[in-house]
Every structure is written in C-alpha cells, then in structure tokens.
Amino acid sequence: MTDLRQSLPVALDASGGDFGPPPLVEGAVEAARSGLKVLLVGERVRLHAELSKYPGSADLPLEIVDAPDVIGMDEHASDVRSRREASINVANTLVKTGRAGAVVSMGHSGASMASSLLTLGRLSGVDRPAILSHLPSRKGFVTLLDVGANADVKPAYLAQWAQLASTYLRVVEGKDAPSVGLLSIGEEDHKGNALTLEVHALLRQMPGLNFHGNVEGRDIFLGSTDIVVTDGFTGNIVLKLAEGEARVLFGWVRDALNASLLSKLGGLLVRSSLRGVAARLDPSSYGASLLIGVKGLSYIGHGSADARAVKNALLRADKAAQTGLIERLNAAMSQAGAATASTAV
C-alpha cells in the first residue's frame, strides 16, 4: 500500500460549519500529527491565527490555501455557481486539478453537494450521486444510501447506487461480494410501493450483484445485509432517527446509573464497557459521509462536527484515495453498463 506520507493531501473546507475554523483546524492538526497531509482551505489570515494556537504546527504537513469567501449555513446552495472563491469551490477545484486526493467539508451540505457535482462532474453511468453513510450494526456496520442527496428518485438511481456501494465496500473495506438489501415494509418480494417493486426487479436481474432482497428497518441494525439502498428522503430520516435515538438511549442509561448510590457503584463497574458502546454509536467515529457517484472523492459531514469527527473524516478520505476508489468505481460502472447492454441485445 502507498505510504501515507507520499499520498496526495486531503483538502479541508476549513471555513464551513456551525462553529467556523476552530474545530476544523484542531481536527486537521490531529490528523497531520499522524502523518496525513492536509490543505486548509479558507481565509488565510484567520487560519494562520488559528494554527498559531498549536505549538509545533509549523512543522506539520499542513498548508493553507487562501479562499476569501465562505457560503454560510443559512445561504442558498445555488450560490456556488457565482462564488468561485468560496472555500468549498476552491477545495473541490484542488481535487479537480490533481492537487488533492479528496475534499472534506463540514459546511453547508447542499452547497457541498452542488459544488462537487458542478466542479467534479458525474461518473459515467451515474444519473445522480448519492450520500453514502455508515451506521453501527450487530455485525460491525451497515452501509446506507442515499441519506439525503435525492428526495425524489427513479428506480435506475437505486440500481446504480447498489453497484457503487458494492464496489466501494470491496475496494475500501475489503468485503468480498457484499450483500445488498432494499429497504421496504416487508421482506417478501411483493411488499412495498411502486418504486420499491420496480427497483426490486432491477436489482434481481443485475449481473454480479449480491442482492439479498427486501429488508425492513429493524434489519439495518441487525446487519442482515452489508448495504441498504433507499431513496434520500427515507434514508435521511433513518439516519437522523438512529443518531437521535442513540443520544436518548444513553441519556436514559446515565439517568439510571445516577438514580441511587447502588446504581452509581454499579456504573463504576461498567464504565469502560459503556464507553466502548458509546464510541460505536458516536457519528464522530466515521467523521463524514461519501458523496458517491461524482468524479472525485467528496466527503460531507455535520455542521456541528467536533475535532474528532474532522480528524476521522480526513483519515477516511485519505484511505479511500489510496485505494484508487474513483478509478475502480468508474471501471465498475462501465462494466455494469456493458453487461446491461449485452443482456438487452
């Protein structure tokens, strides 16, 4: 595998997000301390000031790329078309021109998607990119997509996403023949709405796809399949529900452990185990989600991301870049298109 220190740097939109540069720069510093090269994209003076808070940062593989503009969280995603010096546009251009291997943004998610699509373009055979995310499951993690890029979809989109996600897991996570489930209201083939029924038929006939069949919401966390595909409207609800429920459940656990002296003593005995569970459920463990289907690696995270999430997102993006994921995805989609064409003849 390519030495981490010889790979292309990862471009970080260091101006976007709910809290501005502080947590973004802190996460970049932590990633750089592990040897990862990071391009901090944003207002040069402010980023220099932020970096000065970290002794020894001048010796780390960090470089500032000036971008005087930033698209705020309350602005329109369409603004990316006219604001070329916005940090997210500059960061994506670094990937487009080969100066960076991937882009990571915790800023305006709509602007991040629009900028990546406009700047990088789509892979051949992909109608709409999707946001691919990981959720914890009984068997480790499950890959869910789309989680918010496309509220209104066509059946072909989900078929393409199943192919993209399968290639992603083979290349980046080393999973052979990852299984694909289609989110529906029942496991039986005839269950679901018109969209689900049509997608089911498409997935059944796709050559080389390890299609498991329909899965229900409960199957996501049981790890019944490696991949679950659905429309972006449903996927985003699933994602936010999972994140919110995890916080509530741990709140209940904390309340129960603090209810009495005896429960507090018991809490001391299970503290380390609970920390391990909390780490698995923490969205910061994955850092950001991949916008899959564009001709470049683009990772989009929460605006409220902390330094840990930023660090993990940068490391995850670099890992994907080192595997040559985009080239592998492009080849897979080309093969899938050729196979479909030959079947239709």
Results as ranks from 00 to 15, higher is better:
I300E: 04
E188D: 15
R46H: 12
V142F: 07
A67S: 10
S112N: 06
K240R: 02
D59Q: 15
A339L: 13
L24T: 12
K311T: 01
D306K: 11
P68V: 05
S34M: 09
S137R: 03
V41T: 08
A149Q: 00
I237T: 13
A28D: 01
A86R: 13
E188G: 05
L145A: 10
L222V: 12
G287S: 00
E188W: 12
N214D: 03
R128F: 02
N193K: 13
G293H: 01
V29I: 14
E75V: 12
A201V: 09
L118V: 02
M1Q: 10
P155S: 03
T143Q: 06
S78D: 01
K139V: 02
G140K: 07
V294I: 09
H48Q: 15
H190S: 08
S57W: 07
L209T: 03
Q205T: 15
L197E: 06
A259W: 10
A321V: 07
K154A: 05
T234A: 11
D79S: 15
G232E: 01
S334T: 15
Y286H: 12
I71D: 10
K264R: 15
L297R: 11
R204I: 05
L144Q: 00
N330S: 14
T225Q: 09
S109G: 00
E30V: 03
D231I: 12
A177D: 15
V153Y: 09
L36Q: 14
V153P: 15
R204Y: 04
R271S: 09
G244V: 13
A162T: 15
L4T: 10
S34G: 07
A28I: 00
F250K: 04
W252C: 08
S334F: 03
E173I: 02
K191T: 12
L222G: 03
N312C: 06
G72V: 10
V228D: 06
E327S: 14
A77N: 08
G181R: 05
V90H: 04
M333K: 00
L274C: 04
W161P: 13
R308N: 01
L39D: 00
R271H: 04
L262P: 04
K37G: 12
S298H: 14
R218M: 11
V171Y: 08
K295E: 14
L314R: 04
G72M: 14
A102F: 06
P22F: 11
P136T: 05
D3H: 11
L120V: 09
S57H: 11
D127G: 13
S57M: 13
L209Y: 02
A149F: 01
G98M: 08
V199D: 04
T143G: 04
Y286Q: 06
G244D: 06
P136M: 05
T343Q: 15
A307Q: 08
H48R: 14
G192E: 08
S57R: 06
F250Q: 01
D3R: 13
A344R: 15
A279V: 06
K37Y: 08
N214F: 12
L158P: 11
L265A: 15
P68E: 00
R46A: 14
R138S: 12
G217L: 12
P68H: 08
L290E: 00
K175M: 11
A58P: 06
L36P: 05
I185W: 10
R170C: 07
L158C: 05
E188P: 14
V25A: 09
G101S: 09
